[in-house]
């Protein structure tokens, strides 16, 4: 794959990651702010919304930039391995930012009755465990790409 094709692939994936990590979560939280279930409002304070939005955009930008570098790199190259690893690490921070922003404690106010709270911290912890496995895979990839560098490059050039 030549440089232009690499870059097109990079931009496509960057766009996908921008939508997944920034656009969709922002729209979702914006929607949740005005959402009510059976007439009962889900509580998301202005401050809480601003904190969540900040981290979504901040880490979303890093993930999207990283995705461009990762997906525009040649298959099984060391630079792809390095940036894929960085991307997963930033993804972990992004995931955890939901927790410390308070987005994992969902509160639904029921006027005249009280309120209901859903705590999904345990679910996030399991997700983080899965992310650890993903990090392990990326480190394994990086070692593999480095150790077998010559073989991989030769194979790539042979395809041409």
């Amino acid at each position: 794959m030549g440089a232009p094709k690499n870059m097109i692939k990079g931009f496509i994936f960057m766009g996908i990651y921008t939508v997944i990590t920034i656009v969709v979560p922002l729209l979702t939280f914006g929607y949740i702010r005005q959402l009510s279930i059976e007439g009962y409002a889900i509580q998301l304070t202005q401050q809480g919304y601003e904190i969540i939005s900040f981290w979504i955009v901040a880490f979303g930008l890093l993930i999207s930039g990283c995705a461009f570098f990762t997906y525009s790199s040649p298959k099984q190259s060391i630079r792809k391995g390095v940036f894929a690893l960085i991307q997963v690490l930033i993804n972990c921070l992004y995931m955890w930012s939901y927790k410390f922003s308070g987005a994992t404690d969902i509160q639904i106010d029921i006027s005249g009755f009280g309120f209901v709270v859903l705590l999904v911290q345990d679910l996030v912890l399991v997700y983080m465990g899965v992310y650890f496995l993903t990090i392990a895979i990326k480190i394994y990839d990086l070692v593999d790409f480095t150790v077998n560098r010559k073989t991989i490059r030769e194979a790539r050039w042979e395809d041409k």
Binding site: M1, G2, F68, F69, S72, W157, D159
Partner: peptide, 16 residues
């Protein structure tokens, strides 16, 4: 990241 990615790809596209 984007600028470096473009630069690196122009010099080392990896296919040859």
């Amino acid at each position: 990241f984007i600028v470096t990615g473009i630069f690196v790809n122009c010099y080392w596209p990896g296919d040859k």
